[in-house]
Every structure is written in structure tokens, then in C-alpha cells.
Write a protein that binds this DNA or RNA. Structure first.
Lengths: 251, 251
DNA sequence: GAGTGGTCTAGACCACCAA
DNA sequence: TGGTGGTCTAGACCACTCT
């Protein structure tokens, strides 16, 4: 309890916690808080900025500073399931998977390493960017890289051309099945999950208010012999996403 | 490119990205930036505050504003492994697991639900708080709840008293083995991972600089018949932690 | 002591929103 | 139109770190 804006911030945080300012409501305006605590405008703004950075409130011009309410969407992995499933906490809500871009690229060092491609050759991989939405709001941005050979198998199996594979959003959910039918059955998925604050581009794409971190997931899907079939980097809105894993411990 | 502090912030972000200000170095002082961009002090501070909230820099009084360098510790789950293992990215580094508190408590609604304990009875569970450290820095705070019956089994199996079970930090890594020996073999672990900004207490405990989120993991360990053996809530420093899961897809 | 970032003020103007 | 938060200024004092 040292500085003024810390005292003000802690007081407001307490009031949010005890329900004095319930979720969805607005806290008192800057001017009202200036009067209550007898401080200058920027001191109040510092205090409110702290709360915004903690994700507790979202200041809105012309409206007021709104107490945030969260509802998360859970993504679940379980052994034996073909792929990750949207495990809705609440009931329903329209999901949508939209392909933003799809193009053939030369993978950079990082992607080559994940796909275990040799450095000398000139590999081509299909690079797709997708937006996964829930109730009209983008919850996760997925960047996916698939080696040319795997795309060929899927393409043959599905009876569609490469262009379709590249741009068909629905193909995504069935991709693992298509791989299996083509003889490239995926057997393990490894995901590394970390978190950080979004850069401005990500905050824009995910419509993140200040103070909301992103969940970053790096995925590699492999065949039984250890051959990587695809890799993906997923950036999800921290206030709208969670990932669940169930791992067997039997030996 | 609208407001002044955004322009300044973007310029500094670009310079950090292109190596003009390498990790560990300091960016120019507030006064130097005031001169360069011909703005007032608080405008520079707003710009720097944005970068700090993104986790790119850490302002230090008397030192300057330091460009952050990250090194993460990975925690990995794999099928068949007895428990999560510290999967060091870099080599070595002393790990430490310290019990902060251990006491018998009446579980609240949330914990009872996770452990699937009936609401009517008066259950007692062992509540332990531990700090997991790497190289002297706390990376994760673990709160763990174990039903009395399970503690009894472990206690008998290990040949130590309840008090020892409660306070022995080393017991943690072997807990799953002890459970197995006692006939309470854990067979599955389910973890739900999410992220958010830390509250002040967490930021203090984890020594988090501003702009670093936390990884929050909710774990439930179950026996083959579905009986929960323990549950835990883990709060890890977002700039020092990641979790890796490998899940088999075979059917 | 000199330089750093941290806090705070009093006042001004702007952008946005609802009634 | 009036109220909201957003930006910006010029200046002051404080707390901390290094030399």
C-alpha cells in the first residue's frame, strides 16, 4: 500500500471481488473517482490501467469502464479420439472454421525442424491460415504446415484437387481421417503450450481487449514410425480458450 | 499509426525486433526519447508502458529500460510415464520443490466437485502448497488436494506418518509410485490449461515483471475405476513455463 | 552526485457514445 | 449536447542504482 494509484487500484479490485461492481456494470467514472479519492485525473487513469492490464476491466470511450465477464471455450484432447474436439463448457454456440490464406511456401528453419525435413533440399509445404470462431468471435488463429507428399496422399484419397485441399475449411476436421485412408495414419499428437501477451497484430485479429494474454500451442502430428505429418502453431484468445488433455499413465 | 505514443511504441518495437536494441541491453532513456521524438515525458512513458505490457521490456529504476530475454522450462507429459517430468530445454539448472504449507482442510465446493466427494458428508483433505523452482527462481506455485483415504494408503505404504506425508517435499515426485504400491494406482491424468494475467499476490510470489501472464493448470488424477485420487491447481510464470503433452490417437 | 525510472499535478483538447 | 475515456503537455518531486 504505497503509492496513491496502487491504493486506488486495490480498492477498486476489492470492490469488483466483493460484487460492489458486478460483471457487466461500469465502475465510477474517472471524474467521480477523482472526487472520491481527491487526486488528479492521470492518477486515476494509472489505477484503472493496472486493472485493465490484469484483465479485470475494459475501458470504453463514451461508455465507461466495464467490469469484464469471461466465458471460455475448452478444446479437449483424449487418447483414442481422432482429433481435438470442441468441448463446449456452455451449451451450443455456432462454431466456424474459415480458411484465410492457403499457399505453397518454402518452410523456414523452424518449420523444417518440426517436420524433420533436411536442410539441403528445397521442400515445399502447404501453409494454411485459419480462423476458428465461436459465436461470431474469432477464438483462435491456426497456422498449419503440411508437407507436399502428405497433401498428395490426402488429395488422392479425398478425390479432390490440391486447390480444394488448400482452401476447404471443412477438410480440417477430417484431415486425420483422410490421412489414414491415404495410408498416412497419424498416431500421436504432441502439443507444447505456452503463454505470452499478444503483439498488436494478434490483438487486432482476435479482438483482444488490453490485458488479455494468448495461449500459444505448437503441435506436431506424427505417424507410427515417427514421420511428422503436419505441424501447426495456434494462437488463442486467453479469455476465450482453454485446452484439456487426458493422458494415460498405465505402464 | 494514429497517436504519438503508438508511433513511438511501434518504432521501439521494430528496433527491438531488428536487433538495434538486443536482449539484455537498455533502450534509450526517457529523456533521450523525449529529445528524439520531441514529446513530453508522459508520452514516452505511455509508449514504453505498452512495450512493458507486451512483455518486451522491463523498466528498472536507476538502471534503464531493459530488453527482456526469455528462457523457458518445459514440463512434459507422455503416455506411460509415471508423472510429469521436468523437460529442460537448456541443460541442467538446479530444480527445487519446497512445501510452503500443508494442512487438513474442509474442501470447498470447487474441490469437492473435482474430487467427486458428496456434499453432505464432512470430508477432510490434505491441502499442500508447494513452490517449484528452477535456478533459485520460483517457476510454479502448486496447490494440491488429496483425500484423507488416499493419504492413509500412501502413508501406510511409505511407512511414514501423516505429518511426513504432509510436509515432505520429495514425496511429491514419488507420490504416484506410492499410490500404486498402496493399491491406489493412478491411471489417468486430465489437465485443463488456461491463461490470464496474475493478480498482485501471484505476481509477487512468482516475481513476475509487468506484462507477463500466468499459465493456469487444473489437474485431476484418477484410478482405473474413475475414482479421483488427487487434484491440483498450478499457477506458473508465463515467461518461464511451458507444458508439453503427447497423446496417442490410435483406435 | 548524476542519471535512471516512478509518481503526481492542473489543465487542455480530442474521439466516441447515448439520449 | 453532455458525459465518457484517450492523449498530451510542462513541471515538480521522489526512489533507486551506479560510480
Amino acid at each position: 500500500m504505497a503509492t496513491l494509484h496502487q491504493v486506488i487500484g486495490n480498492t477498486l479490485r476489492q470492490r469488483i471481488a466483493d460484487g460492489t461492481y458486478p460483471p457487466g456494470s461500469t465502475i465510477p467514472s474517472i471524474i467521480e473517482l477523482m472526487d472520491e479519492f481527491d487526486v488528479a485525473r492521470d492518477t486515476v487513469r494509472d489505477a484503472v490501467a493496472r486493472l485493465a492490464n490484469e484483465g479485470l476491466v475494459t475501458p470504453r470511450r463514451g461508455i465507461g469502464t466495464v467490469v469484464r465477464q469471461t466465458s471460455t471455450v475448452a478444446l479437449a484432447y483424449e487418447p483414442g479420439k481422432a482429433a481435438a474436439v470442441w468441448a463446449d463448457q456452455a451449451q451450443g454456440g455456432a462454431r466456424h472454421d474459415m480458411v484465410i490464406t492457403a499457399e505453397w511456401v518454402s518452410p523456414d528453419r523452424e518449420i523444417r525442424a518440426r517436420l524433420e525435413l533436411g536442410g539441403g533440399d528445397t521442400w515445399r509445404v502447404l501453409h494454411r491460415v485459419r480462423h476458428q470462431s465461436k459465436e461470431g468471435v474469432v477464438a483462435q488463429v491456426v497456422e498449419q504446415w503440411i508437407p507436399e507428399s502428405v497433401v498428395g496422399v490426402v488429395s488422392d484419397s479425398a478425390g479432390v484437387g490440391l486447390a480444394d485441399v488448400a482452401t476447404d475449411a471443412e477438410l480440417r476436421t477430417d484431415l486425420f481421417t483422410l490421412m489414414k485412408d491415404g495410408g498416412e495414419e497419424p498416431t500421436t499428437v504432441t502439443e507444447r503450450i505456452s503463454t505470452r501477451m499478444p503483439d498488436p497484430d494478434e490483438a487486432d485479429a482476435l479482438e483482444l481487449p488490453p490485458g488479455v494474454p494468448v495461449l500459444v500451442t505448437h503441435r506436431v502430428t506424427k505417424r507410427a514410425d515417427g514421420t511428422p505429418l503436419e505441424t501447426a502453431t495456434m494462437v488463442g484468445a486467453g479469455d476465450r480458450m482453454s485446452s484439456t488433455f487426458t493422458v494415460p499413465l498405465s505402464r
